[in-house]
Computed example of a mutant assay.
Amino acid sequence: MDRPLFIGLGELLWDVLPGGDQLGGAPANFSYHAAALGAVSLPVSTVGMDERGERALRELEDKGLSTVGIAVTDRCPTGYVEAIVDDRGVATYFFPDDVAWDHLEINEAARDAATRAAAVCFGTLCQRSADSRRVIEDFLRRLPPEAVKVFDVNLRQHFYSPEIVRTSLEQADIVKLNDDELVVLSGYFQLTGDASNQLRQLRERFGLELAILTRGGQGSLLVSATEISDHPGITASLVDTIGAGDSFTAMVTVGILLGLPLTEINDRANRLAAWVCSRPGAMPAIPAEFRLIG
Results as ranks from 00 to 15, higher is better:
233 G>P: 07
233 G>A: 04
234 I>N: 11
234 I>S: 12
234 I>F: 13
234 I>R: 15
234 I>M: 08
234 I>C: 14
235 T>W: 00
236 A>H: 04
236 A>M: 06
236 A>I: 02
236 A>V: 07
236 A>G: 03
237 S>M: 13
238 L>F: 09
238 L>V: 15
238 L>D: 06
240 D>G: 08
240 D>K: 02
240 D>M: 03
240 D>P: 14
240 D>V: 04
240 D>Q: 02
241 T>E: 08
241 T>M: 04
242 I>G: 11
242 I>C: 14
242 I>Q: 11
242 I>D: 07
242 I>L: 12
242 I>F: 08
243 G>P: 09
243 G>Q: 02
243 G>I: 05
244 A>D: 00
245 G>E: 10
245 G>Y: 09
245 G>C: 12
245 G>K: 15
246 D>P: 14
246 D>H: 06
246 D>E: 10
246 D>F: 07
247 S>W: 01
247 S>E: 09
247 S>G: 14
247 S>T: 06
247 S>Q: 11
247 S>H: 05
247 S>D: 10
248 F>A: 02
248 F>W: 14
248 F>D: 05
248 F>N: 03
248 F>R: 05
248 F>L: 13
249 T>R: 12
249 T>I: 10
249 T>L: 11
250 A>T: 08
250 A>L: 06
250 A>Q: 03
250 A>C: 07
251 M>R: 03
251 M>P: 12
252 V>E: 02
252 V>F: 00
253 T>Y: 04
253 T>D: 06
253 T>A: 14
253 T>Q: 07
253 T>F: 02
253 T>L: 08
254 V>E: 07
254 V>P: 11
254 V>F: 05
254 V>H: 08
254 V>Y: 11
254 V>G: 10
255 G>W: 06
256 I>C: 13
256 I>L: 10
257 L>Y: 07
257 L>I: 11
258 L>P: 15
258 L>S: 13
259 G>N: 07
259 G>E: 04
259 G>K: 13
260 L>Y: 08
260 L>I: 05
260 L>M: 08
260 L>P: 07
260 L>A: 06
261 P>Q: 06
261 P>A: 09
261 P>T: 10
261 P>D: 10
262 L>S: 05
262 L>D: 01
263 T>P: 07
263 T>F: 08
263 T>L: 07
263 T>C: 09
264 E>I: 14
264 E>P: 09
264 E>Y: 11
264 E>G: 11
264 E>A: 15
264 E>R: 15
265 I>A: 13
265 I>H: 14
265 I>G: 10
266 N>G: 11
266 N>P: 07
266 N>E: 03
267 D>T: 04
267 D>P: 10
268 R>P: 00
